[in-house]
């Protein structure tokens, strides 16, 4: 349902993405990994046009938006969870969850609130609805961010290093929610360094280096017998 065809992107002189192609089927769980600066986050940000690509094409469900309005419409179908949560600090947890559904899906406050409570319950945080983000722990905030994305009832969710900014103790609770989400059949694309999670949930590992996709393989094969030399060194570094 997400098709990335031959995209390239530069930041000044630096080529972040070099002719990258990737296809993500409905219901797929794809984990993108690789060393820092390899273009993982940029690639995932290209998938909802947050970082527009220079050349190539990105289409969602066969639609390639040509203008801003069309981009906005497509983004409503593809949720995103950020490394730094990016919750709205001036709004309560509930308001964070109902804002976009009310503004963009034209849901009534009552319907949006009902939906928000349903998804907050799903990320095990229903009792915090009236608090502000600053009153929650990092792990709780990230679960709210997941609920906020779910409230749009997207067809896919992009995770951009969702556990990298968390204390080690809180990584588990966020990953648990993501595993449950995967079990429910959500299409997920996840940039992460959590290899245990990748092994458990992913049906495809995409390994990137220097703006290119070096290897695409099922997790079992990737972790036990990677074909590229670069992936071998990367994995040996992770053992430590």
């Amino acid at each position: 349902m997400i098709r990335v065809e031959n995209i390239s992107k530069r930041y000044g002189d630096f080529l972040v993405l070099d002719k990258v192609s990737l296809s993500i089927a409905k219901g797929a769980k794809v984990v993108i990994c690789g060393p820092s600066g390899s273009g993982k986050s940029t690639l995932i940000r290209c998938m909802n046009y947050l970082a527009p690509h220079d050349t190539g094409a990105v289409s969602i469900d066969g639609v390639e938006p040509k203008n801003r309005r069309a981009c906005e419409a497509v983004r409503r179908e593809v949720g995103m969870v950020f490394q730094n949560f990016n919750l709205f600090p001036h709004l309560t947890i509930l308001e964070n969850c109902i804002l976009a559904p009310m503004m963009t899906r034209k849901l009534s406050r009552a319907a949006a609130t009902e939906r928000a409570h349903q998804y907050l319950k799903r990320v095990h945080i229903a009792e915090q609805a009236s608090k502000y983000p600053s009153q929650l722990s990092g792990g709780q905030q990230q679960r709210v961010a997941i609920a906020r994305a779910l409230c749009m009832e997207p067809k896919a969710i992009l995770f951009d290093e969702p556990t990298s900014a968390l204390d080690p103790e809180m990584v588990g609770e966020v990953l648990d929610v993501m595993v449950e989400l995967a079990g429910d059949g959500m299409t997920m694309v996840c940039v992460t360094h959590e290899m245990a999670f990748a092994r458990k949930v992913a049906d495809q590992i995409v390994f990137m280096d220097k703006g290119q996709i070096v290897e695409v393989a099922p997790p079992e094969q990737f972790f036990t017998a990677p074909t590229s030399a670069r992936a071998k060194t990367f994995l040996s570094q992770l053992q430590h």
Partner: peptide, 13 residues
Amino acid sequence: GQKAAGVALGMTR
């Protein structure tokens, strides 16, 4: 990141 979050939710400018 605040703007990025709004954009990612499909909100208009």
